[in-house]
Design a protein around this nucleic acid. Structure first.
Lengths: 169, 169
DNA sequence: ACGAAACCATTGGATGTCCTAGTATATTGC
DNA sequence: GCAATATACTAGGACATCCAATGGTTTCGT
């Protein structure tokens, strides 16, 4: 996309903020901008790793979620809630995964409103293989030291709880 | 989107990873997943704040970048590099900002290949007003404590440098 | 039991991003 | 001068997300 810069563009932005008299919010601005950029880098790595499997991150997340469910099946709504995305995004992801033969829809046994998404054998296999690929290519060398990983987990857990994602400790 | 969960879904995912024998990468997985989710929350807040101004985050970033440039103008390529996005994304953003009368294109005085993007008066005004809105609505209450903000800045700066974003200290 | 309200999944439409490829033009290096 | 390089645009496609609206189902209050 671009060759490496000689200066940190986010540090520059922070300086600009301070010079304009917004020093009180310059640091949070820098932190938030850095999160945006970091997400972009990580997402690119993840999608690159998943590409050979024909998966995007959104679809992988659903596949992985199903692979951890009791019998490999979940109500659509439940998936939407757990993955924190709109119901229509689940519909979209399930459509594509179903076309690829990785999941199938089935009616809920007792509640006629909800439909269940269920892993196929092929889907379960691909979930395992793609997870192994992600573990090897991304998670095993994340670009953060062990201490920083712990810090991140704590800071972002607090943030997400504060944002209303969940309520437990 | 969904009511708050009673349990942290990322902590659950981490437990699942550990139970499957991937304990060595479970923590980085959790950290990376948390970054993804945090970015999603922050982006939603930012876009909500920018919506009244008819701006998306991508367009705001370009507008803000221009407002800090020497004379409010930059070569397209330079903007692409500084914002770390694809050149076509800059073209797309400039198209829309130009339609809204916020920027205009002009030929580079000496290099006939490059075109400059320049803020209009209207664009400069909107940059100022939308930045004030973001400062007030998002950056002044980011959801991180001051110490955590500093931690984030340091950790993510190291990460970005390591990822090849820039080279300085 | 019945009707209103709430819930679930889907559709269609609109946005927006990124990527690839190809084209036109201009610059730079040899 | 000529070849290689650089810049920006266009066109087309793949995705993901959000929104509003729809049809079907369940739940709840009376």
């Amino acid at each position: 996309m671009g060759s490496p810069l000689s200066r940190d563009p986010i540090a520059d932005a922070r300086r600009n903020w301070e010079e304009r008299g917004w020093a009180d919010v310059a640091a949070p601005m820098a932190a938030i901008t850095a999160i945006m950029r970091t997400q972009q880098i990580l997402l690119a790595r993840i999608e690159l790793t998943l590409k050979p499997f024909g998966l995007t991150f959104a679809r992988y997340e659903l596949l992985a979620l199903l692979s951890f469910a009791r019998n490999g099946s979940l109500p659509m709504k439940k998936a939407s809630t757990l993955l924190q995305v709109h119901p229509t995004s689940i519909t979209n992801a399930v459509d594509r995964l179903q076309d690829a033969g990785l999941v199938r829809r089935s009616p809920h046994p007792t509640d006629g409103r909800t439909t269940l998404v269920e892993l196929t054998d092929e889907g379960r296999t691909l979930a395992k293989r793609s997870t192994a690929a992600l573990n090897a290519a991304v998670f095993s060398d994340p670009g953060f030291g062990p201490d920083d990983v712990d810090q991140l987990i704590r800071i972002l857990r607090d943030f997400r709880r504060n944002a209303g994602d969940f309520t437990d400790s």
